[in-house]
């Protein structure tokens, strides 16, 4: 059983120590919002700020997004380059993003101090809303989670309820293969969790459909896209200075009109840009206001990268990016 309060205290203590010693400029973590049932990103700039840091299974956001943002900042002309380090709280899956960013030379190792939390699965906010359905809206405040074996004991203003963990588990956590941060300066929490191999059974149904059925399925999904680009903006690996979909000069790749023709182009290109890089943190699908199953595209490419090129992203910062290298024996039977 995990004591979230104890983990939170350890995170606070570490962050405080780092901020007091000046090792880091600020610490990126989570805080609990008074109104929302799920935690939100928080930046602790002073040792006092660390009191607000929070930990629980509702810490869903992949915070490495803000790490890249900070690393991309450039000093004014003539000034020396930035060297300050940033502290960050990561879940095991998010730590793979940092590895991937290091692989791509976006984050130098010495500029990041990582608190790797060993914890169980995160929750799916949609499922949480569903579980809270019978709680009056006015009471859905100060929601806290407590580990009770198979269940989460969820306390809220003026009551509590018990929900099986399996009912709240986020989909991405069901297929997770890392349960301990791949890279960290400090580990918070203990425990060994069994490594379950990923069999990609969640996309099997789609793969087995006929071609026409698959297109019908995707056409329907693509028709819903409103092109808010939240899937891109929430992705820590989409860090280009100028996104190809925003570009107007010299050529506009994608028209602003929202229709299957443009939307599917956007989603296909986005998926290709993440091929061999995506670590399946699931943020794209979580943020989508139209509930488009974006992860199914990413998951397929993760599977194919594994099958074709034996590439599995985010495990080893010494490796080269998948499209930055090649193997003489790469399969290519399709090529005539």
């Amino acid at each position: 059983m995990i004591d979230f309060k104890a983990l939170e205290a350890e995170i606070k203590a570490t962050a405080k120590k780092w901020l007091e010693s000046g090792e880091v400029k600020f610490v990126i973590g989570y805080e609990k919002s008074p109104e929302s049932p799920i935690a939100r990103p928080f930046f602790a700039h002073t040792p006092e700020d660390t009191e607000k840091l929070y930990w629980g299974p509702d810490c869903i956001n992949n915070l490495t997004l803000y790490l890249v943002e900070e690393m991309k900042k450039k000093p004014k002309k003539g000034q020396p380059p930035f060297t300050h380090a940033v502290g960050i709280v990561v879940k095991p899956c998010d730590s793979r993003t940092i590895v991937e960013l290091m692989k791509e030379h976006m984050v130098p190792r010495e500029r990041v101090k990582i608190i790797g939390v060993i914890s169980e699965e995160s929750i799916n906010p949609d499922k949480l809303y569903l579980a809270l359905k019978n709680v009056p809206a006015s009471q859905r405040r100060n929601i806290r989670f407590h580990d009770a074996g198979e269940n989460f004991r969820i306390t809220y203003q003026g009551g509590e309820l018990s929900v099986p963990k399996k009912e709240l588990e986020a989909d991405k956590c069901k297929v997770c293969v890392v349960h301990k941060a791949v890279i960290a300066d400090v580990f918070v929490g203990t425990g060994e969790i069994e490594f379950k191999p990923d069999d990609f059974s969640d996309i099997k149904e789609l793969e087995e459909m006929s071609e026409e059925e698959r297109w019908k399925y995707w056409e329907q999904q693509m028709s819903r896209c409103v092109r808010c680009y939240a899937c891109r903006d929430a992705c820590p690996l989409c860090y280009c200075e100028e996104c190809v979909f925003d570009r107007e000069k010299p050529y506009r790749w994608v028209e602003k009109s929202v229709q299957v023709r443009e939307n599917s182009f956007y989603h296909l290109v986005r998926a290709m840009h993440l091929a061999g890089r995506c670590i399946d943190c699931g943020e794209c699908q979580r943020v989508c206001p139209m509930e488009i199953p974006i992860r199914q595209l990413n998951r397929f490419l993760i599977k194919k990268a594994k099958d074709r090129f034996k590439v599995f992203s985010g495990m080893n910062a010494e490796e080269k990016p998948m499209f930055g290298t090649y193997d003489l024996d790469d399969p290519g039977e399709e090529i005539k």
Partner: peptide, 17 residues
Amino acid sequence: RRKLTLLMDLLDYMGVD
């Protein structure tokens, strides 16, 4: 070869032959 064979797979997955 790496990029484009992967794209072929993705096209199939989208239901485009």
